[in-house]
Simulated scan of single mutants.
Amino acid sequence: MLTMARRLQDLLDITRALDFLGPLALRLYLAPLFWMAGTKKFANI
């Protein structure tokens, strides 16, 4: 039982190291949309 808990903790430690990937992917996806919206606002001044 204790070894299973240690394995689970090791797995959680590995996934904690990759926590930044979700928000990074979302930012990379949304950046062009916000860029286009912003440049259109400046072009219509």
Rank of each mutant, 00 (worst) to 15 (best):
P32A: 00
K40L: 13
L26D: 05
L18E: 09
K40M: 10
L8E: 08
K41G: 03
L8I: 14
L12H: 04
T15K: 02
L21G: 00
L12G: 06
W35N: 07
A37F: 02
A17H: 10
N44E: 13
I14G: 07
F34G: 03
L21Y: 01
A37K: 05
L8D: 09
A37W: 01
R6H: 11
L11Y: 13
F34L: 07
T15C: 05
L11V: 10
A37L: 05
L2Y: 07
G38V: 06
M4R: 15
R27Y: 09
W35Y: 11
L2C: 07
N44Y: 15
M1G: 07
R7A: 13
M4F: 15
L8R: 07
L8A: 15
L26R: 09
I14S: 05
R16E: 11
M4A: 15
N44Q: 11
D19H: 13
L18G: 06
L18K: 12
T15G: 01
L12S: 12
D10Q: 08
N44S: 09
L26K: 06
T39N: 02
L12E: 08
F20D: 02
F42L: 12
T15V: 11
D13V: 15
A37E: 07
L28M: 02
A43Q: 02
P23F: 01
R16L: 07
Q9D: 14
A31M: 01
A5N: 03
L24D: 04
T39V: 08
R27G: 15
R27F: 13
A25E: 01
L30T: 08
L2G: 01
G22C: 04
L8T: 15
L8N: 07
K41N: 08
L2R: 13
L21C: 04
D10N: 06
M4C: 12
L12F: 10
T3F: 11
F42M: 07
G22P: 02
L12Y: 10
L33C: 10
T39W: 06
N44L: 11
M36K: 09
R16D: 10
M1P: 02
G38W: 01
A25D: 04
T39Y: 07
R6K: 13
T39F: 10
L21F: 02
R27N: 09
L30A: 08
I45P: 03
K41P: 03
Q9M: 15
A31V: 04
L12R: 04
R16T: 15
L24E: 05
L33G: 08
I14C: 06
T3C: 12
L8S: 10
L26V: 14
